[in-house]
Amino acid sequence: MNRQREIHALRERLSALEPVGLLGQESRFTLGSQRVDDALGGGLSRAALHEVVTFGSADAAAAIGFVTGLSRRAGGPSRAMLWVRQTTGEAEAGKLYPHGLFEMGLDPRSIIQVRLRDATGVLRAGIEGARCEALGCVVIEIWGDPKILDLTATRRLALGAEESGVPVFLLRFSRKVESSAAATRWQVRSLASRPLEADAPGHPAFDVTLVRQRAGIGGLDWKMEWNIDRHEFEEQALSRTVASLPFDREDQAAGAARWRQAG
């Protein structure tokens, strides 16, 4: 596994040195976790539309975090990316915070953020981005079920991605799952982290379902963590204590001592 990673790193470096015409030999990018990548047939296709679905705003941070990880995997640390957000999303789940994205492995300088009110504009901007070969990836966030986001719209996005070789991540905050032209569809929920010492919350953790993929089996579940040092997804190891301890009134007496002190 280590060897593969080294080879992958070398390939990445090589492709950075190659002129543009030869780019795209690497048609897939890996998530980092061997089992997940194997199930995907060696990673996710670059030239494709990938859909990440989550139910409403409660798991928005998980979904956006998962896509942040995918973006890092697809585009590396410094390739420019386009992130198109609906302003509804900002009210529901907050604004993108570059310091946090930086810690996740993205370079905030390379993010072009487009904020628009209506879904039509968001899709338009997204398609414009999907056609731009120079981008590392495109993220599009759509809230609810706008009529405009139909099979035709997703086909257009998929087509843009196929022609440019730029992966497009369509984040949908909706309960309704409709047909789309996406190559894969994921469903993401927050997952309890493996607590660190003194009961501090652990690393970013995601409960991920690969609902379906066009060229393979769907309905696969993984519990994943994002390794912020190696910038890769890994399956969450079974933690020392699987569930957190039941809430204990007596514990409260201990007060702040129960929590880990920062700094």
Partner: peptide, 13 residues
């Protein structure tokens, strides 16, 4: 290194 992110990815202002 080895620590979870100190800053959120989404912020409310």
């Amino acid at each position: 290194a080895g620590e979870p992110p100190l800053r959120p990815i989404l912020i409310f202002t």
